[in-house]
Nucleic acid binder design. Structure first.
Lengths: 346, 346
DNA sequence: ATTGGCACTCTCATACTAAGAGTGCTAAGA
DNA sequence: TCTTAGCACTCTTAGTATGAGAGTGCCAAT
């Protein structure tokens, strides 16, 4: 099962060549373009071995070789050279520059949008961002603004600097003065609590208050419950279709249609990304490793970003399996860290 | 230049047939599918006339006929039957149902997104919405929420029920108490003023206040100026790429790429749509009539929607020239009116 | 004025062919 | 024993040819 150094060299050469050119790579190409001190015949033999071991495959008899998922996987795990760090460094500079010029806005919506653009622009693939999960963020402040008799605008701020606004209908009319007191009460009780623990916290509070019944408190809690029910599904930002159009693997309409179907149904994609939130850091899904089977001929690279305390969202890149894993991994990694930094500052 | 009744019948038949099938239509098809009491030879003669007059064209010698832009234009202007109203009525019911089930949300962002989805879903083309132009909306209320020493969250509500929030850095620290007073001042002065007149109003105010100098007022106005500078470019919502993929005219990647390029650069599209805001009501751009020349082989149907007082945004559909104008016009029209109604209620 | 008939044109799908790229295998060389 | 050169073989791709089919334009007859 172990590969000899020479086999690894050849495999690396094939993968890199295919990543660059999108053409099945033949033994002659390898011997010419990579200085391995071997003639094409020897390389042919080794490539036949690699095929037998499942790292390479041929689109048809007597064509060049193409990496299999297993081949890509081995490449990602073992063959990404150390030198990548320095290249990543250069990349980092471009990224920093890119972020600086494009992320002037401190609006969360805008931040997400721009970040997904940067991802796609840098990677020449689809950039995706799963916006901060409400539940994972931390309560900071709430404000109520009365719009009409029974209609109240709720503005909602988390420690991460996320602002959300929603309009709710109250059961009965509440004066602006009362709304302010309710807000003060909630802010005192809930500041610093992770949103997903708020419900529990409220229930505790309710039990405590039961004895010395307070109409205001009861109202406050009812109001907040109403807001919680409106918990918005994590939004997802996708950018870069125009990048994808340029890729030769999507020169066929049916292929691009398939990809589109996969990302169109955002709910599946969201729950898919949710599962990658468990483990922190960069994760690479190659072709069939992809949990979603409409994406079997795509690869996805994701990483998590953190809010004040914990992981709150995902950034990632989706593209054809033939993707510059080394480069994209470092782009995704850096973007995630950048977002974490921004959100930590609040 | 005038067309005889028979010529009009034939032209209508050709246009409708082509809209339905996307195939160049021959004289035989017309005589078979439309009961005009004419044999194919007669129809052939008429079609040749229509071609000479520029209403039809042939993809190649001895193929069926396809409507030209002029042909579509004549169809839209003169040949859409009266019966369309009743069909529109049926459509309207579906639309109402569609809106009712999907537009539960009263969040503006969500409203726009859902409306663009409805547009594309109903028309099987691209649905686009130009979100309310800030300048055209009417000031209702402002609130400041202090986040950090010099960082203030501004929440902004218009009479149309649009909520915007932005974070600004103030020059020096302002207490929450002062912020409240500033908000009260601004709200008193500016309520009911169209946002685009706010700047002028402020300048007037400044001149008046100059005599009895008031630090608070001056601060308030400076703050507001800062917000105005951040005036966000009108956002645009586009939905329905998956619909477009199904259309035969976009079975070629280069075609779909061209369309994508056109809508990708949102700024051009926005300024394009801006120009259609001058005249109220439904407008139809057929092929070369399109101001944007990347869209020369597309048609666009737009309409304006109003806020409390005036036109504040655009809804529209973009698709191939072969589009069911009758149907799409009524969809766009209804959607615009629906949005206006929703926004009037606030 | 309308219709039937007929020759003509052009596309599209299919089949065929030659060129080219790449392989696998074998035998000779280091 | 490993490497290399050579050669026959396979498979794709691009280009060409061919025939069917759809549609036209025009002419003569009604």
């Amino acid at each position: 099962m172990e590969l000899s150094d020479r086999n690894r060299d050849i495999l690396r050469a094939v993968v890199q060549s295919f990543i660059n050119t999108a053409e099945p790579v033949g033994s002659k190409t390898v011997s010419k373009r990579f200085d391995l001190g071997l003639c094409s015949a020897s390389i042919r033999n080794i490539m036949a071995d690699l095929e037998e071991m499942g790292y390479l495959s041929q689109p048809y008899t007597s064509a060049g070789r193409v990496p299999t998922d297993k081949g890509y996987r081995f490449y990602v795990n073992n063959l990404v050279e150390e030198s990548s760090v320095t290249i990543g460094e250069r990349h980092r500079e471009i990224l920093v520059e890119e972020f600086r010029t494009r992320l002037a806005s401190s609006d969360m919506n805008q931040l997400m949008k721009e970040a997904s653009k940067v991802l796609s622009f840098m990677s020449h693939n689809l950039g995706i961002i799963l916006a901060p999960k409400c539940g994972e963020t931390i309560y900071r402040k709430i404000e109520f603004i009365k719009l009409k008799a029974r209609r109240v605008l709720v503005v909602f701020i988390t420690e991460e600097g996320i602002v959300q606004d929603r309009v709710i209908e109250t059961e009965d009319e509440i004066t602006q003065r009362d709304l302010i007191r309710i807000a003060e009460f909630l802010n005192a009780k809930l500041k610093g609590v992770p949103l997903k623990d708020v419900r529990r916290k409220i229930e505790e509070e309710l039990r405590e208050e039961e004895a010395r019944y307070d109409r205001l408190v009861e109202r406050a809690l009812r109001l907040y419950n109403q807001i919680l029910e409106m918990e918005r599904a994590g939004e997802i930002y996708i950018w870069g279709m125009s990048e994808v159009f340029e890729l030769p693997e999507f020169s066929d309409v049916t292929k691009i249609k398939r990809l589109f179907k996969a990302i169109e149904d955002k709910h599946t994609l969201i729950s898919l990304l949710d599962t990658t939130m468990e483990a922190e850091g960069v994760r690479v899904f190659i072709g069939s490793e992809n949990p979603c089977h409409e994406m079997q001929d795509c690869s996805m690279i994701t990483s998590t970003y953190r809010g004040r305390e914990r992981v709150i969202g995902i950034v990632g890149v989706i593209g054809p399996r033939r993707m510059d894993y080394r480069e994209v991994i470092s782009i995704v990694d850096y973007t995630a860290k950048f977002l974490s930094r921004v959100l930590r500052k609040g």
